[in-house]
Amino acid sequence: VVDQIRLWQIEGERMKTTQGYLFREFEDWQEYDRTVKYAKDIGVLEWKNDSKWLFFVHKHEQLASFVKADKARRAAEGR
């Protein structure tokens, strides 16, 4: 019985799954960097890769608004 319990524990740890959204195709490092920092600040960041400019979050609504606002701000600054 103890062996069975141990086996189940191992099975549970095989893979951890999290539903969410992968963000990609940033225009430049600054856009990536600001967005990923914001994701971390609001506590939705699950995984990131700074060299690939990719990150994964478990919620995206707030982040989508941030990306739009950031884009508008940059456009206003003429960049």
Binding site: Q19, L22, E25, V67
Partner: peptide
């Protein structure tokens, strides 16, 4: 403009990942 695609993040050890691949 970055894109967001919906999906599931899977975290596992490299041996398990090799089997998934």
């Amino acid at each position: 403009m970055p894109k967001a695609s919906k999906g599931v993040l899977v975290e596992c050890d490299p041996a398990i990942k090799a089997i998934i691949l």
